[in-house]
Amino acid sequence: MTGGGVTTVAQLAGLALSALLTLAVLSYLWGDNPVYRASQYLMAGLTAGYAAALAWNHVLAPRLRALITEPAEFWPYGLMLLLCGLLLARGWPPLQRLSGLPLALMLGVGAALAVGGAIRGTLLPQMGAMIVSLSPARHAPGITGLAQALDAGFMLLVTLTVLWVYRYRAPSEGGSPLPRALVRGIDRTGRLLMLVVVAASLAGAALSYFAALRGRVDFMLDWLGSLMGWGG
């Protein structure tokens, strides 16, 4: 058998396996069953194995090689590998405390990056985006400016309403200075707006899942077509 033939057989076997696994996953439509569960475990195991192999090939091995071949230039990699080794000490009780060092480093750096990133990348820019003029003249001339000003006003109103829903305070004895009906109205509007956001997210998720299903159905039809000779 030629090399090309082997490739073809391997490809055909791979396609057949993919099709069988697709059917195994779709069998969940008839309820939980061992075939579906086996495919789940297979996927989890393969993902973990693939990630481990990739981490070795793309992260650890190149650095280890660089450290061995050019230690004078790449000595910081030795420090990195030492920290990795300390992390492994977690499984050995006499040296377990040493694993706290790389863990503390990871958590500390991770937290600093996450907080700093959230402030610089989300909080401040989003707050800045909210500070817009409500004057139509500052946006654009004519009806366009008016529409943009209305849009900005609506955005501000929605933001304030949703923020209002999240207020937490102890009830004062004198009650709220605002009329109760107004407070209740703002509350309801805020919750309704949040519901709209959740609905939009759910609709998007439904579309994504449908796209995944459509992809699998397409694949199955193509596979069946190649088996039966429909596709030519």
């Binding site: 800045g128 985006a129 609709a203 998007g204 579309l207």
Partner: peptide
């Protein structure tokens, strides 16, 4: 992106980030 996460990312597009 896919449609599932687009609504949560719209504010970043609207703010110009």
């Amino acid at each position: 992106t896919n449609a599932a996460i687009a609504p949560q990312l719209e504010p970043y597009a609207a703010s110009g980030q």
